[in-house]
């Protein structure tokens, strides 16, 4: 298969470490409209860093690429930018985006934490390109349209972000109509909390997509009181709610996000 070679047209720094690149394809086309990559490869050098891309103008061979240079040294960062400005390049280790737009989606509630900013920017771009209504719900530290992110291309088309930390999320979700989907990108505790609220309100698995970051907290479902306690598979834990000693099986419920905890036989 022909290698996909790209050339930088325009760049913009939109936060301390994140850059958005407008690029044109010189040869070939990427396999996905929206996706991720792990490496920028130039003729003589490669850089590993988190990369996401969307194809707002795919028909004319234009892509928008987001790169996160947080893990690079200052010297490496400068080197990457210089290489981008002067050489064509390739994206390596491609994969599809974690979030997939389902048919007949009318609206997306996008919950974002800072750790997932790169992924979220790409999702926002994708939703905006497809003219899907979206509500951005962010943590207090992250204000997409505020000081931290300065992305002129978005100023007009992106909705204002709302902080969800002090909001009654249960109330907000319970007033949503059929056709609404939830995308949640952030650390596992935030994703887990939202997942429970969403399920309680009536969002099915199909309507709730997520990408969790960091360490995942394993939970155990107590067969006695039907509540969740922190704990891992094949261990023994005491239910935090009814104090029953549970033998935790390796049977995992995706719906509950927990392992099954059976009452310990004496």
């Amino acid at each position: 298969m022909e290698a996909v070679r790209l050339k930088l047209i325009q760049e913009q720094r939109i936060s301390d470490y994140i850059y958005v690149l407008e690029v044109k394809t010189l040869t070939g086309s990427l396999n996905f409209y929206h996706g991720a990559a792990e490496q920028l490869r130039f003729k003589h050098q490669s850089f590993s860093l988190p990369i996401r891309f969307t194809a707002p103008y795919q028909e004319v061979g234009m892509y928008r690429i987001f790169i996160d240079t947080y893990f690079l040294t200052d010297e490496e960062r400068l080197n990457v930018l210089n290489q981008l400005r002067t050489h064509d390049f390739q994206l390596e280790c491609l994969s599809p985006l974690s979030f997939v737009l389902q048919p007949n989606t009318q609206k997306v509630l996008l919950f974002i934490e800072e750790i997932a900013l790169l992924e979220s920017l790409t999702v926002m771009e994708m939703l905006a390109n497809l003219h899907i209504d979206m509500i951005l719900l962010v943590t207090d530290e992250l204000q997409i349209t505020g000081k931290q992110i300065n992305y002129k291309l978005w100023q007009d088309s992106m909705p204002t972000a709302i902080s969800f930390q002090n909001k009654d999320v249960h109330f907000l979700l319970s007033w949503q109509k059929i056709g609404t989907h939830i995308f949640a990108a952030g650390a596992w505790p935030m994703v887990d909390r939202l997942k429970r609220i969403a399920e309680d309100v009536g969002f099915s698995d199909e309507l709730f997509q997520f990408k969790g970051y960091g360490e995942m907290t394993p939970y155990v479902f107590c067969v006695r009181c039907y509540k969740l306690t922190k704990g891992n598979q094949n261990t023994q834990v005491q239910c935090e709610h009814c104090r029953t000693i549970l033998d935790v099986s390796n049977q995992y419920s995706k719906r509950l996000g927990a392992y099954l905890g059976n009452i310990k036989a004496i």
Binding site: L173, K177, I178, V201, G202, F203
Partner: peptide, 9 residues
């Protein structure tokens, strides 16, 4: 009639 119903319907 099914349009604009709340989530969980």
């Amino acid at each position: 009639i099914m349009e604009n119903q709340y989530i969980g319907t």
